[in-house]
Design a protein around this nucleic acid. Structure first.
Length: 335
DNA sequence: AATGGTATTTTGCCTGA
DNA sequence: TCAGGCGAAATACCATT
């Protein structure tokens, strides 16, 4: 056990070293370019494409202490953001309690012995409360992903609450911890109207989009979170800053979206696409030359979709508000 | 060079066996 | 749980300004 603790110390040192030199194997998730760390701004940005990967680099620490009280568990360093130690899915593995293999056949005596040893360890984990460990790993993941995406701490805590509810309601069995953790974070992001998209989540999550969206829909329904589809306006500020557009354009785009929503042009359509189209349309209105392709690159929406949506937006605008006033009073008679 | 339009393929969601 | 229908979006390609 002494060897273990020295190992621990070494790990700690190397981790601290990496933090000061800003970066392990960091590669830009967008373009694959090299990442540089700006300590004064606390940002990790891609030198090639300018993508901000991590805006608050200092808060790599575990946040899950707010959720459980067992101090001894802190020493176990479970769920800490030093994720390379946990890249295997070992922690989500469970040992069955029957002496059967996956096909239901009985095990040989030597295998039974092996399983007994494993159960001994499993028992130790269990006495430390299985679900606490589950929770801790999930919260560590939520925090890791959240900080990589620049999600504020308050929203990350909301995500933790969502996850804990899912755990309490027994929604976990049959689902991966990672998937539900990602789903919880996304639910919190949606609930607080933050601009992170599903695509953003997939970049930092270890589960694929299908698994995570499935888990998201499931917990959304089962927990009655009643989170509707994203509001296109949520994405505006993010895209506007990415495109270096003016505040005036942002306001026009917002107006267009509000008008569009009133005219119901957004039902069943991609909110991201609508936001992209609103920016393009607003660019025309305020004479800022933003090409469809530029916006397409920044928003991951095709130019075709931008065309279709912005046309609908302008039609709705013409129908409803022929006067070019930015009147907020949107009382209207539909059709 | 950018936009507008169209045909085709891909993709995800829903529904019904 | 799965296949298939369906609409939206992407992709490819061409026309227009």
């Amino acid at each position: 056990m002494t060897t273990l603790s020295t190992h621990d110390a070494e790990e700690r040192e190397s981790t601290a070293d990496e933090e000061t030199t800003a970066g392990e194997d960091h590669v830009c998730p967008d373009c694959g370019g090299h990442l540089t760390h700006d300590a004064s701004r606390g940002e990790t940005v891609c030198a090639d494409c300018g993508l901000v990967v991590d805006e608050n680099a200092i808060d790599r620490g575990p946040e899950w202490r707010a959720f459980d009280s067992a101090e001894r568990d802190e020493k176990s360093r479970v769920g800490a953001p030093t994720t390379k130690l946990m890249h295997d899915e070992g922690l989500s593995t469970n040992i069955g309690w029957q002496n059967k293999d996956a096909n239901g056949n009985s095990l040989s005596s030597s295998q039974r012995e092996k399983m007994q040893r494993l159960r001994t360890w499993n028992e130790r984990f269990r006495t430390r409360d299985h679900s606490e460990r589950n929770l801790k790993q999930a919260l560590g993941e939520i925090d890791r992903m959240g900080s990589a995406l620049g999600v504020p701490k308050s929203a990350r805590e909301t995500a933790g609450v969502v996850y804990r509810r899912a755990l309490d309601e027994g929604l976990l069995p049959g689902r991966s911890i990672e998937g539900v953790a990602t789903a919880s974070l996304y639910a919190a992001v949606r609930q607080t109207n933050l601009p992170q998209t599903i695509d953003d989540m997939v970049v930092v999550s270890r589960v694929d989009e299908q698994e995570f969206t499935r888990a998201y829909r499931y917990i959304n329904r089962e927990l009655s979170l009643e989170i509707g589809p994203p509001d296109p306006a949520d994405y505006l500020s993010k895209f506007v800053s990415e495109l270096d557009a003016s505040d005036e354009l942002a306001m026009r785009a917002h107006d267009l979206i509000e008008n569009g929503k009133a005219a119901n042009v957004h039902s069943g359509k991609s909110p991201v696409g609508l936001a992209a189209a609103a920016i393009y349309a607003a660019g025309l209105l305020v004479n800022e030359e933003l090409t469809q392709e530029t916006i397409s690159d920044a928003t991951d929406v095709s130019t075709v979709t931008i065309r279709d949506r912005y046309r609908e937006l302008l039609e709705a605008e013409a129908d409803r508000d022929p006067v070019e006033a930015s009147a907020a009073g949107g009382s209207n008679a539909s059709a």
